[in-house]
Design a protein around this nucleic acid. Structure first.
Lengths: 210, 210
DNA sequence: GTAACTTGATAACAATAGTTCACAGTTTGT
DNA sequence: ACAAACTGTGAACTATTGTTATCAAGTTAC
């Protein structure tokens, strides 16, 4: 079941949103301040947090880094009545995944929640891969280069990739390719041609290899 | 000298912005489409790109990933007359560093440019560190744990950190700590107490270690 | 068919990473 | 002052990573 953490200091709106989300089948924990939200996040796991921007005490945006400390994969949606482009940009810079304006229709909220969860879903994949192997695989310039080239060309045959990485000894390159396969970043398709796994694509997107 | 790539299909506005930015001492390359901007980015280095959202052909937001392909550290500002919170959020999700609304005052543009460059400045630091060493250092759960703990506690003495990482043999932990030092992620302050380097803080921020 | 290229497996080896042990100088508490 | 805990160094050793050489099955070109 998807668990939602809601921080909203308007009592009536909070009750309404809780009711709405519970009808949608979510499990909701509602609090009235950013501080309370942080405290809750230390107690139990949440998939997504809906934070009002302006509350007495800490703002929703200020709470983001605290929430992520205990729940690195939590999706965060900032909700605010006074949203401008600037406040939205600021919230995104500070780590929000989305920003909604108040007032909103029930369906807008549900759609935003579903989309934010979907976008985070890819991140969850990372949880089931072995970070030791991935970092170890990235700790070599040939392999980082191979990944980048593979990302650019989508699919490459062994020798083509080998040449592009500029390793003259193909057996040496074969070794590095195996390391990439072992780390789950690269695989061969049915025609034995090398492609990135979606893990590989994710890693490449988020690591900006140099 | 800071080099700016400007993509704007309104000829008059483009000329005005070029004039303004050159007066401010920037070196500006101006084009009239996202496609032309991508082509330029393959020719020379830019510190920052100012992209109009709506142009004939590709939008500014669609060009972002292409630009980053050749220039991973480029800062990107999306400029648009029809900015809503939703379009701004979308642009940020796709990798923009900031979003500005048209029309804007000269000073707003200059301030936004300076701030975006400053925020990217941290990234440049990464360029001068050895990715082999960093990834290698991260390829071990003890070391990732030590980094996380160090980030939470800011500063820790050797034995305190060792206990928190739950390694019983302090000399074994000492080895891993040396690896972290060698990678430039951790250092000792004047009182010999262990702290993260700013490289270490950057890595921790951007890797969300699991 | 055969010569050249492709795509691997395997073994032998060097270099690096990681562990453990022994020991020693420095702080800290009492 | 003395013991205990702290903060290391260095040597010995094992495991893993990375390189090189040899060999071989499959594919393609002619």
């Amino acid at each position: 079941m998807v668990s939602i953490l809601l921080a909203e200091d308007d009592n009536e709106l909070r009750r309404n949103v809780v009711e709405l989300l519970e009808l949608e089948g979510y499990q909701v924990t509602a609090v009235a301040s950013a501080e309370a939200a942080i405290a809750e996040s230390e107690q139990q796991h949440f998939d997504i947090a809906l934070l009002d921007l302006l509350m007495s005490g800490m703002t929703g945006v200020e709470a983001i880094s605290n929430l992520r400390q205990h729940q690195p994969f939590i999706a965060i949606v900032i909700i605010t009545a006074y949203a401008t482009v600037d406040t939205a940009v600021d919230a995104m810079k500070k780590g929000a995944d989305s920003v909604m304006t108040k007032p909103f229709k029930s369906q807008e909220l549900v759609v935003t929640i579903k989309r934010s969860l979907a976008e985070k879903e890819i991140l969850k994949n990372r949880a089931d891969l072995d970070p030791d192997l991935v970092y170890s695989a990235l700790a070599n310039p040939y392999r980082r280069k191979a990944l980048k080239i593979l990302a650019a060309h989508q699919a490459l045959k062994f020798m083509d990739l080998c040449r592009l990485v500029e390793i003259d000894d193909h057996t040496k390159f074969n070794f590095h390719l195996r390391q990439l396969k072992k780390a789950g970043l690269v695989m061969q398709n049915e025609k034995k041609i090398y492609i990135l796994t979606n893990t590989g694509q994710f890693v490449l997107q988020h690591h900006n290899l140099s």
